[in-house]
Design a protein around this nucleic acid. Structure first.
Lengths: 220, 220
DNA sequence: TGAATAATTGTGCAAGCGTATAATTTCAAA
DNA sequence: TTTGAAATTATACGCTTGCACAATTATTCA
């Protein structure tokens, strides 16, 4: 008769906020933005809906925190490939390109999250800024690799051409990432990486690129 | 006391379906998927919510019809350049590529719509089918143009290579379309078209492509 | 050990959602 | 002009949503 409440543990604020953000991302990845209801998020976090309002002033607040965390995480992941590489410039470029169109970067979950948020980028200014910054950061990194690879190959390019090459290479990578994630069954394993490497080489006027890494990068 | 009903006109079935689809697209472009409620769509179409269920078996049915119309519309818009073109195969390819990364195909509204839909593609099977079909339709069209252009240049390619080239060219176009639509202020006018033409030429190993059309295509 | 504090739960509410369905109005054919 | 069928409106229902708030529990500190 005593409607016994469920027992619970008090977590630190940082931990709980993190858990709720992770749960929100899970929900969005699984069921899209419309599937990320307050109740669903709380459920996934093993918590009661009311608690969300204790840590976030509104659901919108939680969602925007989740987006921020997603973008930060993706940028860090793309940077990780390069941090401890001692390959040649050409090799580094090849590794970077191959990694960008191979799991875990190509991943239905990542795609679902990106798709769930991209719409808000067009409406919300804060989101737009985050998006713009992380896009340019990625492209700048790519441009640096291209610059090094061209120099190594004895075919340096001027600034204007370099910028255009970076935009084009970035576009190929984005396009392949998109198509590979949205229609995975349409491409054989490794096919996207081969196409990406061949395309970047053709765009830069370089001989075929071969990645130095033996296989796909480890997740996380 | 006589709760006088609002007067109305009977439209043909095709017309009403079109109106409702257009209204749905407007709603999604403006307020995102969550803004496209049955009531909002009916309101924008100057109609009563109940009517939607008279022409579509469910809201989901209407939404997927709208997505289909958006995608085929974009492909047709790119292909319109070709309908009465008597240009060479190389010229047709150039026109097609340039049109795909130039307004009105590159357009924040189109991007907003696409972004609103893409996440459902990963979840809903019907949406997935629509996406897959329209993606392949666009790529097939592109592949046909590439095939003709390569033949004309005396460098025919076998089927496997042709497929890969089409995937790569399609990826560049998609990527440029995405970036140009999401961050329009990042690119000078005509810059995307130049990059696209240069990239496709480099990918195919052809000399620079030059469009035959004098300028951007007229809207609609 | 006991009291104070803040984290967490549980309940309830008003609004909006998609949908079913009955009541009306329009329009074309007779 | 009348009639009949189909298009359209109007109303209502059950469900879900985000949010507010009071009740309760775990934890800390004296």
């Amino acid at each position: 008769m005593t409607g016994q409440r469920r027992s619970f543990r008090r977590e630190g604020e940082a931990q709980r906020r993190d858990d709720l953000i992770a749960a929100a991302l899970d929900c969005i990845a699984t069921g899209g933005p419309s599937g990320a209801t307050v109740r669903a998020i709380a459920d996934r976090a093993g918590v009661t809906p009311g608690l969300i309002r204790h840590y976030f002033t509104s659901k919108e607040d939680l969602i925007s925190a989740a987006y921020s965390r997603l973008m930060t995480g993706m940028t860090e992941q793309s940077a990780r490939v390069l941090t401890d590489s001692r390959a040649s410039a050409l090799g580094q470029l090849a590794d970077f390109v191959a990694a960008a169109v191979t799991p875990p970067v190509v991943d239905p979950r990542a795609m679902a999250l990106w798709a769930g948020f991209i719409h808000t980028v067009l409406i919300d200014d804060r989101m737009r800024t985050v998006h713009s910054e992380s896009y340019l950061a990625f492209r700048d990194r790519l441009q640096g690799l291209i610059c090094g690879a061209l120099a190594e190959a004895g075919r340096p390019a001027d600034a204007v051409r370099l910028r255009r090459l970076a935009i084009a290479c970035n576009a190929v990578i984005d396009g392949l990432w998109l198509e590979g994630s949205a229609l995975p069954e349409e491409f054989a394993e490794g096919e996207l990486a081969e196409i990406a490497l061949g395309s970047v080489a053709a765009l830069l006027g370089l001989p075929p690129l071969t990645p130095t890494a033996p296989g796909p990068v480890a997740r996380n």
